[in-house]
Design a protein around this nucleic acid. Sequence first.
DNA 1: CATTTGAGAATGAACGTTCGCTCTTTATGC
DNA 2: GCATAAAGAGCGAACGTTCATTCTCAAATG
Lengths: 224, 224
Amino acid sequence: MDDFQGQGRETVVTMADAYTLSRAERRDQQTQRILDAAKACFVRSGFQGASMQEVCAEVGMSPGALYRYFPSKEAIIEAICEVDRQQDIESFITFLENPSIVDGLVEAAVAHITHVHERGNAALFAEIRAESTRNETIQTTCLKCQQQVYEIIRERVRLATERGEIDPPVDLDTLMAAFMAIGEGIALNDLPSLGVPVANLEILLRAMVEGMLRPTGRTTADSR
Amino acid sequence: MDDFQGQGRETVVTMADAYTLSRAERRDQQTQRILDAAKACFVRSGFQGASMQEVCAEVGMSPGALYRYFPSKEAIIEAICEVDRQQDIESFITFLENPSIVDGLVEAAVAHITHVHERGNAALFAEIRAESTRNETIQTTCLKCQQQVYEIIRERVRLATERGEIDPPVDLDTLMAAFMAIGEGIALNDLPSLGVPVANLEILLRAMVEGMLRPTGRTTADSR
DNA sequence: CATTTGAGAATGAACGTTCGCTCTTTATGC
DNA sequence: GCATAAAGAGCGAACGTTCATTCTCAAATG
């Protein structure tokens, strides 16, 4: 995997490979290779700490070639942030579907934790988070993704409160701010990697969410 | 506050000022000035992103002079991390003293949130956190500070459980890991700056902690 | 007068990026 | 189907800049 673009002429991998790829396909594939390699470098050395030379070495590509795919280092960073944030958020949203709010929140949180853990993304998230306080583009990306989750949860909590299914001890805004902050803390710390069993975590999170939402026991429909 | 070390010779602040300082005092004072200025730069541009020139300009000091106080940029970064982490932790520990665990945790959390907010330290914390995944010295500093809090809370929760004051739904390790992660998330997000009233937050945190610890109502002594 | 403090130019290394070039792939004309 | 042009992909040296740090020397201090 290392002597990809070697020195000799005969080791060069031609564009028309065993299974011939179109120009566009090849381009997409190379772009992805760069993003993957850059991500590894950025996790290792930080956005500012990693040099383009380091990224080039990781991809196995010369600077001249790499700059045909991205116009600048910043563009690579921003692309990585965009993809990462969107992916993180999608797994979360999917699991919010459960009709019970408490179950939905807990399941989504557990799915999110598992997702971050499996992809080893906690360190990158920490990096993105720090960078987002400085880079406006990244900040916008983060906010946009966060808001998707925020709006959905907020609306569901609001409706459930209106219906009398839950009785939170504080206003909706405080509740939501706390939820988002807590979720971030848990994702950032990658608890499974610290040896915390997800099953135990789920029990605790349910107790926590119930404490914060105070389910009344009655439901409008026959959801149980 | 800007034209401190001006260009002219007569504006130079001599060492023997109105109230004469000893050599050591003057040195400490200058060291502190450097740390403060560097902190501002690092918050603005990040540890890697800020240059020494930027720091020098912020202090109002030449590189040659600055390097008489710190041997390297890294030394400044590490000193800032050390001080910041220790300060953050101290305010927390102080407020854990309340005999009721729930009250202690909630009060400490609120004090911590207030402290981080007032000092505007959330961005620096994000930076330190990201850097700690790369710099071993910083990581050690963070762990050491975190552990001080961890041990105290853990022991208090353990004793309270033993006494039957609380009945957590999960094992102590899971509980503690979650507590630390949640605390970090809340501190990092600086909720007061988002407009969340601390009073509301306190109510919610209490509900949350009670959900996670399940106080039984009985106490060993007459603490209520 | 010995020592400390400071300024500011200078250092070499490393940075992100560009350039000129070669080779390969695709498009075009016959 | 084949020659040939145009475009794309890639390399690696080189660019100008900025980096952290050091050096030299002057001023202030005790």
